[in-house]
Design a protein around this nucleic acid. Structure first.
Lengths: 254, 254
DNA sequence: CGCTGTCTTGAAACTGCTCAACGCGTGTGG
DNA sequence: CCACACGCGTTGAGCAGTTTCAAGACAGCG
């Protein structure tokens, strides 16, 4: 398997040691005009947020922290359809009808919220706002395609590796002892529902990764990737993930 | 299991007998301003369409027919991430990087194509265009959430039922002999890649549905749903699908 | 009329799921 | 302060559904 050169560098993710509080990526800052007209919702872990605003369609923009969107179909089939990171957007209409869609916070953070109709009015005056939204939505659509391929085509271990890589790239920081450390924001059940797996199977797979020395759990809510390259080698989506998540620091390449 | 009343009506999909050529749904007509500035690409079945326009980002709008978007990750893992019907839109940036994304026609039809930068310029003058695009993109995002739940959480038979229901609602017409007839635009392999299944397994499942009298194949490229309600009962997404696809005839409810 | 690609079908192997038990940390009430 | 219950994660054994591999049927096409 061919690896990109960036996978071979000493510090593949380019992470600084500092635990930066990761807000929206540079160059994709949330337009001030939006922030000025939006309410700030402060989230804490586990909090659920109504997808509508007094019954009206709403627009959410993640400023910091992370959120989770899930749908539940009859027969209790639950699927987490996406994770939202700073700079991501969500419109009420993204949720399918009759599907019990929920938005919930997986970490403390801040979310901007405004009426969709207000956004439209603002965007009519300032095309820049529409562009911000469309670009964010496009980025998320691309990520969802990878996620869909993972859920549809990867085996259990590949899915877990994909998820860990995603988290490492998004929220990881270089640990003093080497490796990359990050918070595990999702419970086992939520992870399983994100990856289309059974929670038991997921637990087993994590144990196997731990046993192989690739991963360790300094504490219940944290994870430490001991061998980033080995982890990347276990998911066919490594290159795509690094392009999608990895370079939020510098300008996107493509 | 509770069924909606619409599932119980005599003609559940509200299909007329006429083989309407189904272009973009009423009330969501493609804005004339866009059509005026776009090139018309006439597709034939199987044709692949470049996702970019002379290397630039492009916007596609489906006028008639249907298209398929797929990604292929290393190890030959292919996933069809979405089907595009009339009124749907696609932006080059929807495709993830390093993922071998392809756009191909699954039936004859017409697609509008223009540079994304041109679209932005037009949308700056006419906010209506931005709204058209955003609404189309939101609708597709909702559909993808259902698709993702199906791929991540449904068993083989549920996925197949979901797909058949989707096609029936989208392209089916009431057959003279009763039931709903439609073209099968995807090959078994494409269907399997759409549903995250093995092609052999898919074939077996279709055979089982045929054996149970629910479905028949008047000819290789067509399918006839003999018992729509029984089919709907086999997918947990029935209600969502009917809301998403079923009411393209009249105004959307929600 | 034979060739080719697609679809179907069978038997065996395997992956991931179900179910049930257990361990661990946390909160609560005696 | 300890006992207990609870939520959550882990683990094992058995099982079911899906995939694999291989062979054969079918239709379309030169």
């Amino acid at each position: 398997m061919v690896m990109t050169s960036s996978l071979k560098t000493r510090n593949p993710t380019g992470l600084t040691g500092a635990a930066s509080d990761r807000t929206a990526p540079a160059g994709e800052a949330i337009p001030a005009a939006l922030a000025a007209h939006a309410a700030i919702v402060r989230t804490r872990r586990g909090q659920t947020i109504s997808l509508t605003l007094e019954g009206n369609e709403a627009l959410f923009i993640v400023q910091s922290g992370a959120l989770m969107v899930d749908v539940t179909l009859p027969e209790d089939l639950r699927q987490v359809v996406g994770l939202l990171y700073p700079g991501d957007v969500l419109r009420s209409d993204f949720a399918p009808p009759h599907a019990a869609a929920h938005l919930s916070a997986v970490s403390a953070g801040e979310v901007l919220r405004l009426r969709w109709s207000n956004f439209l009015a603002l965007a009519a005056d300032d095309p820049e706002l529409g562009r911000f939204f469309d670009d964010a939505a496009a980025r998320q659509t691309a990520r969802r395609s990878i996620h869909m391929a993972a859920v549809g085509r990867f085996d259990c271990q590949q899915r877990v590796a994909t998820f860990l890589l995603e988290l490492a790239l998004r929220t990881g920081v270089a640990a003093p002892c080497g490796g990359i450390e990050f918070e595990m924001p999702l419970s086992r059940t939520d992870m399983a529902d994100y990856l289309g797996l059974n929670a038991d199977t997921l637990s087993r797979t994590m144990s196997r990764l731990r046993a192989s020395g690739l991963l360790s759990h300094p504490d219940r809510r944290r994870a430490l990737i001991r061998d980033f390259e080995a982890l990347a080698a276990r998911t066919p989506a490594a290159k795509s993930l690094m392009a999608l998540y990895g370079d939020t620091r510098a300008g996107r390449s493509r």
